[in-house]
């Protein structure tokens, strides 16, 4: 299946990446090439095969005890923030 310009614009919006109009054609070409190439998987008979999400699948994922293991490190948490004030993250206005 080929990926057209409007599909690229749609997935770019889903991925929250601004893609300039002038890049859309080239990206559509590149993604079409990759998608066309991965479609060779259709040759493989996978009827009745269980999809494998992880090679660690056989093991039971652990849950740790529900206790506090960390905390009181506000400075460390905020140390890489683009903007902070009074010990809080500052984010753009969310509610119009």
């Amino acid at each position: 299946m080929s990926v057209d310009k409007s599909t690229v614009a749609r997935i770019a919006q889903l991925a929250r990446i601004k893609v300039p109009e002038e890049d859309l054609d080239a990206l559509a070409d590149e993604l079409s090439k990759i998608v066309g190439w991965v479609e060779q998987l259709d040759e493989v008979d996978t009827d009745g095969v269980a999809p494998m999400a992880s090679t660690a699948e056989g093991t039971v994922l652990r849950q740790r005890d529900d206790v506090v293991t960390d905390g009181n490190c506000r400075e460390a948490v905020l140390s890489n923030a683009p903007e902070t004030t009074n010990g809080y993250f500052v984010v753009p206005k969310v509610i119009e």
Partner: peptide, 19 residues
Amino acid sequence: DGMRYGLRAEGDSLSEVYE
């Protein structure tokens, strides 16, 4: 997403800041 760490670019709305 430009909120807690890493680069943050300017934008007129939250969505635009992300993008």
